[in-house]
Design a protein around this nucleic acid. Structure first.
Ligand SMILES: [Mn+2]
Ligand SMILES: [Mn+2]
Ligand SMILES: [Mn+2]
Ligand SMILES: [Mn+2]
Lengths: 242, 242
DNA sequence: ACTTAAATTTCGACTTGTCTAAACATTTTA
DNA sequence: TAAAATGTTTAGACAAGTCGAAATTTAAGT
């Protein structure tokens, strides 16, 4: 299970600011960003190791390196936080990932559960110009196929208020704008139900004893979804402030 | 000048046949293919080292590895040749490279001298399905932006007879179908002259004392090109057998 | 043939990214 | 607050890819 992925970019061109991170470094940065979003606390060694499928010892080494490069703040045993620079670099990677995901679905017609792994590789192609042109080619999309926001070239990202179906009021209407669970089985299930970002969802009933929901999609017939499914679907309710 | 590029693909999916070559291995295979095309002889260690910007010692190591994997034939001090399998793998990489080049020019509007380095990275994204869909998206192109043939998914490639302008007869007409020199300065020079694949070229005069040529492009006004330029432009003359 | 010269391989050695086992620090929990 | 559990770092090793220097082999020259 050795998933090695090294690259010492000899890119002398590219942006002066921040070029030359290996595949591996980039994956660590992205992972730390993801984990940072999930809680205020510093990100733990174990959490990183788990998400990356490596061991804690390995993470400690990389943490040292990233810290030396001033991409993360680190004090022994205290976990890590991205620096301003690290944050910028990490978002740039996420931007590339999500733009490629749009490309794969919109242009190559991949299904939304097939794109993640390919984008996981494409995101490391490190050319400022490539990303700029890809963005334009795709029409400057604001969200990826899973409903996640794509930061613009300056790192600004459209934040919209999102809750799960579970938190909706009965008879309330909302637009589906994303998923929490990104795994293939879940995505395929949603596709089967024709429950994809952009659809209008009205919560008709929520069953007391197991929390499952009856909804209508685009004002069509009633659809039953389990509590688990409902709690993994993100929706935006009109007229809501962030 | 350490241009490292490692990857041990943990791809368990993908084609059963031939997956799981590192970036580095792929670059060696492609290089050996290129050098094989330039002469009948076995490819020498030094030639590979030179093209890859590495040292002979390094090449010897990789050669052993590739040989062990049955991708090349190798006897000490005798140079290497691709096996049937190695040839297939190498052409698949070339195919990906050239398809991405088409994408970069046709869809992202890169100039033909800017695409090589980016394609050099994209070619290693190893997904059968991705390449298949990209090919379709691009309309199954037969040639890349430099006029080089793109093998189809079975490895078949359209061979057309090509010579340089220097070998044309006076008053003869031909279609530009490629370049020998692929460097940026040369490509930019040709672009400035509007001398790109597809153009109709008529050789009007060839000067004796320095071999420079006067040609017309698409029946337009006369254009002067040096002997060096003429010898680096590939053309196809109608009604010629391979 | 015998002696150079050139190309190739072998021999340590270094860098990245990884792992296991053992040591050390911080938290829990009784 | 002291012992136990959990989390993190250190130490030693390994595979991949690379290099310089030295040893070998093949090719050339006379
Ligand atoms: Mn990745
Ligand atoms: Mn996504
Ligand atoms: Mn390459
Ligand atoms: Mn090309």
């Amino acid at each position: 299970m050795a998933a090695i992925n090294t690259r010492t970019s000899p890119k002398k061109e590219s942006t002066i600011v921040d070029a030359g991170h290996s595949f591996t470094e980039e994956n660590y940065l992205k992972t730390i960003l993801k984990l940072s979003e999930q809680s205020e606390d510093a990100v733990s060694t174990n959490a990183i190791a788990f998400r990356l499928g490596t061991k804690a010892a390995t993470v400690t080494d990389m943490i040292r390196k990233l810290s030396q490069k001033k991409l993360i703040h680190y004090k022994k045993y205290q976990g890590v936080r991205l620096t301003a620079r690290g944050t910028k670099v990490a978002w740039a990677i996420v931007r590339r990932h999500r733009l490629w995901e749009v490309f794969l679905t919109e242009k190559l017609h991949f299904k939304w559960d097939e794109i993640h792994n390919i984008a996981e590789e494409l995101e490391h192609i490190n050319s400022e110009e490539l990303v700029k042109r890809l963005d334009k080619f795709l029409g400057f999309p604001k969200f990826d196929p899973h409903g996640d926001p794509i930061p613009d070239s300056k790192g600004r990202l459209s934040r919209i208020s999102r809750t799960t179906i579970k938190e909706m009021q009965i008879k309330q209407t909302a637009i589906m704008t994303g998923v929490i669970d990104h795994t293939s089985p879940f995505l395929r299930h949603l596709e089967m139900l024709k429950l994809t970002p952009g659809k209008e969802i009205k919560l008709l009933r929520m069953l007391d004893f197991d929390g499952s929901c009856i909804i209508s999609i685009n004002r069509g017939e009633e659809t039953y979804i389990s509590s688990l499914v409902a709690s993994n679907i993100l929706v935006s309710i009109r007229n809501e402030k962030v």
